[in-house]
Design a protein around this nucleic acid. Structure first.
Length: 296
DNA sequence: AGAGCATAACGTGTATTGCG
DNA sequence: CGCAATACACGTTATGCTCT
């Protein structure tokens, strides 16, 4: 193969991102046959097909996906370079696009992001299921994903887990419920109204084990995937709910609820998941560094 | 019929080569 | 060194094919 033609790579990358030659050509301000032809030349030069036709559309081949992942890093680094140069000139800040698993406690997410905000990064948060956010990683829809469980991606997916830390989990409820359930904890939870995260979350699996180990059979009032919604249920008095001890004060203040007790042997882990083994984004590095101060 | 992509034919700008 | 010829890359429009 001759030397890599970055112009070809750029066209290919745009076609892959835009999902077609026509859309890419519109975006690049070129004629459709130009893009089509240049990609054919690129394919000939690397000796492999990057797209195959499916109906009227193009889909990436295995090789195409591999090339795309590299192109994505190459051109996102280029963007970072552009931002860094602009910053030097005192202009715009670096943008940090973050995927937040909707099971994660929002107060924890905020504390994690504080150093990035303090460094004047422009933070963009996308909240969704972890699986969907992870699918965005290789195509750089997001710079990193916060999750409460490590990703186990496909063999070809370049996904790297960076453990941030862990903290204990405590039970909270409205004042009325807290006074009823704070004595003889955790036995008092037997038959108590409980709000739990849905079973697709890591915290729920830990809580199920904990309930089993303590032979507790609470009355599960609701299962809520979104942690903020779960706390809203709790704040309205629907039942006892669990939240990380690291944000105890903030939970009590923001939701007007009371701490009952910490759950023995239960912890919640937090991970930053990126598409690169090495953290290159200064904002991400700052987040991981800062989390060491308040997470175990 | 219309959308999306590929191919053919051709124009233009730039790099390379050969010669005086 | 300067200039013309040539090669090459990359762009265009026109058109055809396939699929929905």
């Amino acid at each position: 193969m001759e030397r890599l033609n970055y112009q070809h790579l750029f066209y290919f990358w745009n076609v892959a991102r835009e999902g077609g030659v026509t859309r890419a050509s519109e975006k690049l301000g070129l004629a459709q046959p130009t893009i089509s032809g240049q990609i054919a030349v690129f394919e000939a030069s690397i000796g492999a097909q990057l797209f195959r036709k499916e109906g009227r559309n193009l889909v990436m081949t295995e090789t195409g996906r591999t090339v795309f992942n590299y192109a994505d890093e190459i051109f996102s680094l280029g963007r970072e370079l552009g931002s860094a140069l602009k910053n030097r000139a005192g202009a715009v800040s670096v943008r940090l696009s973050v995927g937040v698993s909707n099971a994660l406690p929002k107060l924890v997410v905020y504390r994690l992001l504080e150093p990035a905000l303090a460094a004047h990064n422009q933070v963009v948060c996308h909240e969704d299921k972890t699986e969907r956010l992870l699918a965005e990683l290789p195509v750089h829809g997001v710079d990193l994903v916060f999750s409460d469980w490590p990703a186990t991606g496909a063999a070809d997916a370049r996904i790297y887990n960076h453990p941030i830390g862990e903290c204990g989990v405590a039970a909270f409820a409205t004042l009325e419920l807290q006074q009823r359930y704070r004595k003889n904890f955790p036995r008092c939870l037997d038959g108590a109204p409980l709000l739990l995260p849905t079973s697709n979350t890591a915290l729920r699996r830990s809580l199920d084990q904990w309930l089993d180990a303590n032979s507790l059979f609470p009355k599960i009032v609701a299962e809520v995937e979104d942690s903020a919604l779960l706390k809203t249920f709790g704040a309205a008095g629907a039942g006892v709910f669990m939240a990380p001890t690291a944000v105890r004060a903030q939970v009590e203040e923001q939701y007007g609820v009371k701490y009952i007790a910490t759950l023995d042997g239960v912890s919640e882990r937090f991970y930053a998941i990126t598409a690169q083994r090495k953290i290159k984004h200064a904002g991400v590095a700052a987040i991981l560094e800062s989390a060491r101060d308040w997470l175990v």
